[in-house]
Amino acid sequence: MVSKYSNAVLLPLLLFGVVIAIWSAISAGIPGFPPPSEVWSELLIVLSDPFYNNGAGDQGIALQLGNSLARVFGGFALAIAVGVPVGLLIGMSKSAYTAFNPYIQILKPVSPLAWLPLALFVFKEVNTTAIFVIFVTSIWPIIINTALGVRSVSEDYLNVARVLQLSAFERVFQIILPVAVPFIFTGMRLSLGIAWLVIVAAEMLTGGVGIGFWIWDEYNNLNYSHIIIGIILIGIIGYILDAAMGLIADFFDYRKRGLK
């Protein structure tokens, strides 16, 4: 009998074997494509000294990832600072919604990378440019989900606020935000996920220190095993970011606190 728990370990391991087999077949067929064994030994080397720093072009993997994460969190924090108030405003005011909505709908589908050359021209500096691109990436889901959260506040709660004569300030903090916060965190979680996708591409274009440029640089160095290492590490960090945001979101969600 195979228990549910051992299934959760055995099945992915089984698939892992299949993936390794296919990967080995590909590397046997394409000259120069690194086999799993080579990537594994390279990974150990890369992880053995993650913090070395030999100047701008040559730094350890942890510093590369750290630079990318810093840009993501910088742009993400700016997007929260701007997006949440704007979302609250357009959620609460029909006029503000009418004014903002066409621009949001038009700007939302634009790839954040399309802003990159313009930002580079304005800021003339890659770090600020990358942060700006992440800001543009993150802001739309935050605005849209915050406004959705505000609009999902039940009329009954607002009537309670009216009977108690809550001020606009009290209404926002005691009625609207408790309802909207889970929505805001959903928006933040979406934003952070997309931001982590976009930073890799943005850094490939801007250059400098960062995991995106590191991967591009290793392509130019013909060091393909490092590209695969980059993909794996980006995936693991993206998973950790998403799981952490999920935990934070649950912590602020009254529906998951009150009802056990």
């Binding site: 039940s154 009537n159 309670v160 009216r162 009977v163 108690l164 004569q165 005691q174 009254y254 009150g258």
Partner: peptide, 27 residues
């Protein structure tokens, strides 16, 4: 306009679900 001298008991109770029984009244 609405005011607390005319308290309303709503059909669907309208308690704030993120506050406890005590906190709902305390608020």
């Amino acid at each position: 306009a609405p005011g607390p001298e005319r308290a309303v008991v709503f059909q669907n109770h309208s308690l704030l679900p993120w506050l406890s029984v005590y906190q709902n009244i305390e608020m």
